[in-house]
């Protein structure tokens, strides 16, 4: 089962898109983590010495780990805030706050786990991608 028709297919798309029973579904979703971090790690190492943010790593990571709440174009959905019109500094500092476990708004507990494992490079890449593309 392959997804053939999605513009920004997240890494785990083909894993999630099974129509197995729920139990299998859970196994498959948890697989997402090692795969996701494996790839991120590879990208991060590749850019370790680079100064500029890696937009394409930011894009991949956003599609994989952020879009399901903030929307594919960062415009926000339901209780999840829009990320549009934010500059790089703002996004970076917010992500660092969440990474440190700081509560910002009423729903910080939903965001904190998503920032907990981000590296400084991840944050720089995400912030650059979001600020550049969602204005």
């Amino acid at each position: 089962m392959k997804r053939r028709c999605h513009q920004a297919a997240p890494l785990h798309a083909s894993l999630r898109l099974s129509f197995d029973s729920n139990t299998t579904y859970l196994e498959k979703t948890t697989m997402k983590r090692p795969l996701f971090f494996g790839i991120t790690a590879a990208l991060t190492i590749g850019w370790a010495s680079a100064q500029a943010a890696d937009m394409s790593a930011g894009k991949t990571m956003f599609a994989d780990a952020c879009a399901q709440c903030h929307g594919p174009t960062g415009k926000g959905m339901a209780s999840f805030p829009s990320l549009r019109g934010r500059d790089t500094d703002y996004i970076e500092s917010r992500l660092k706050q969440y990474r440190a476990g700081e509560r910002v708004g009423a729903n910080s507990s939903l965001m904190i786990p998503n920032a907990a494992n981000l590296s400084d490079d991840d944050i720089a890449n995400l912030a650059a991608y979001i600020a550049e593309n969602f204005d």
Partner: peptide
């Protein structure tokens, strides 16, 4: 995120089977 397809018992008290719909447009 998904659409589940549930085979619900006719008396509404249990389910016989639950599967995930294979979605052509993704989740």
């Amino acid at each position: 995120q998904r659409i589940s397809m549930i085979d619900i018992a006719e008396d509404g008290l249990s389910v016989n089977d639950v599967a995930e719909m294979p979605l052509p447009m993704g989740s």
